[in-house]
Design a protein around this nucleic acid. Structure first.
Lengths: 195, 195, 195, 195
DNA sequence: GATGAATGAGGCTTCATTCAT
DNA sequence: TATGAATGAAGCCTCATTCAT
């Protein structure tokens, strides 16, 4: 079934859903609240999403594509892989800093893998893709002797864990820029830069 | 405050609650499920906890003391601070590996600071205490030239973020020991060991 | 405040509520019973009334206006105040005879002033207003020497007490007309008619 | 089964029950509250009364004997029946003024005849007995031309209604004595004293 | 397509009652 | 006999979902 209707209204509902799910979790976020936040009547929500479950799935999955476009870029290694890495990390963190709401919801899902099994699997896939994206730069850096010799997949995993942990701990978009710069700098340590 | 009744039964309920809250979140975990898991009747839960909210608070707060006893030990720095640090990290991760269920619930709370505001504040306090606990060792390591000169509080924060991230990503107790060893090794990187 | 929804359905629920509260008291009257009596589903009650408490309040307060319109008429005294009084009493009792259900609920509330404090105060106000309504006729009757000189407010109070007492004792609408005529006749005695 | 046990404890529970039932009605008064008020553990209540229902019945019925002893005295008419009547009324009201709590509970029962059918019948009997008790004095007064010729049973009924109404309206023991004197004076009017 | 009234399943909670101590 | 922990029935209320307008 195609989705004519108002794409704009659908987007507003989805955004509101992310907002409310992120803030209150699945059960406490009510359709009524989401509708209100989106500025539509609650019946309208069911025009665009079959039920609450589908809305949640959409809220988790649909923005993921955009996240991947930013997080999974894999630059061709040059002669300065560490500088490239730093640039990449910087991009990641800047992006994540903006995605406070969405990423909180992601962590909510990851944190309940039994409850949201299908979604969890989809999100877990992401870590594998991040490994692939980071590997070339890491390998290059190690080959050039600028990074300690560690298993590249482990490095990618710990880096992703770090990002998640930062988002969990440091919640707010009103964090000053310098704080994010600090995180970026420390994140690089996980890659084992020499000196 | 002396609790009459059966301490043992209370403990069983609390454990079941942690289990269910951790697995399903606050709303989806039902008192009925918790009671069943604890092997008591529905009504008995209310003999030991005023209501669901209080049960949740107890499930979050009461085990925290034990966590602190392990996580906030602050060894007197010797001439080998980095070795001490490694030992400390090892202790932390071994402990966390066991606390899979409880720590998932903690992250659930941290991830919804608006919803669980009071609990969040209590847990947030923890990060400050970890700073204090780690500072002596970090400072000593830096003084001895074995650690890069970074702000000790930042190091503590990023380390805690990392722990949280690892627990979030790598969920399960059925993880092999080697995996945890890897995390311990990589965690040390965040402290900026020279070489 | 314009209520959308169906005024007619709301009225039916309210009537059913009065019926059930009057018969069984607040606690024993269940929302389920009220809904059934009103011919609506359980949930529909909550579409029109926030909760059981609000429904009870509405059941007590809303019909009061109509009661006041009948009970608080204060006719301009003529040269035959006692005849007017008798007419008034007659109106009161005929009305009360019809309001068996509602007035039982009122007495239920008055009988538990601590439990239903706010409602009690609202109903208690009624007695003051009845004083004002009756005073002109009583005073006129006393001035004309047709009534014993008694404090008019006391007369009004005892008269109201009598009405309440009659409603409490003689409950039922299947009472014959003659019984009510008797009560009317005896009620007049409380005003102290000479001869 | 006889009732050895502690009669005194039983009495305390019964009194507490009257207190709580009177204040909050049957359903809202909990066994726990009653036990607390009586200064016993709530399990003890079940030692003396089979269940809540039986406790309520006992609370309603048992004190009734004492009430009857006061309210149903029928003095031998002398040559001053009106003075005797006034004395009798005075006794009634003084007694009722003391029995604020118990009489409120009685009215609670009378007000819900369907719900408390058996108890209602028992209490309703009282009005017939009051008729018998008052009749001699009323008849004598009428014969002597000191009272208007009204049906004695009707007079007794309206008098009882008045008492009930007064208790319902004027609730409190902190009423001043003068107020009760007023009620006594006005109550006499219902008997139709000449002049 | 948009709305919101109607529905009832399911959760939390209270509380009478049982019964082991 | 006195106690209070254990139990579960039953009530209130929320909220996802349906559907008539």
């Amino acid at each position: 079934m195609a989705l004519p209707k108002s794409e704009e209204k659908r987007a507003r509902i989805l955004e509101a859903a992310i907002q409310m799910f992120s803030q209150n979790g699945y059960s406490k976020a009510t359709i009524k609240d989401i509708a209100k936040e989106a500025g539509v009547s609650f019946g309208t929500v069911f025009t665009y999403f079959e039920n609450k479950d589908e809305l949640f799935k959409a809220a988790v999955i649909e923005p993921l594509e955009g996240v991947k476009r930013v997080m999974l870029v894999s630059p061709e290694p040059t002669e300065e892989p560490v500088a490239q890495l730093k640039e990449l990390i910087s991009t990641h963190f800047r992006f994540f800093a903006q995605q406070a709401t969405y990423s909180r919801m992601i962590q909510y899902v990851i944190g309940q893998p039994d409850r949201f099994h299908d979604l969890f699997l989809e999100l877990d896939q992401f870590s594998l893709e991040l490994r692939d994206a980071l590997r070339p730069l890491i390998v290059k850096g190690q080959e050039m002797g600028q990074l300690i010799e560690l298993n590249p997949d482990d490095v990618a995993d710990t880096y992703l864990a770090f990002i998640n942990g930062v988002r969990l701990t440091r919640i707010d978009s009103y964090e000053e820029r310098s704080r994010w710069d600090m995180y970026i700098q420390h994140a690089l340590l996980l890659f084992g830069p020499k000196q």
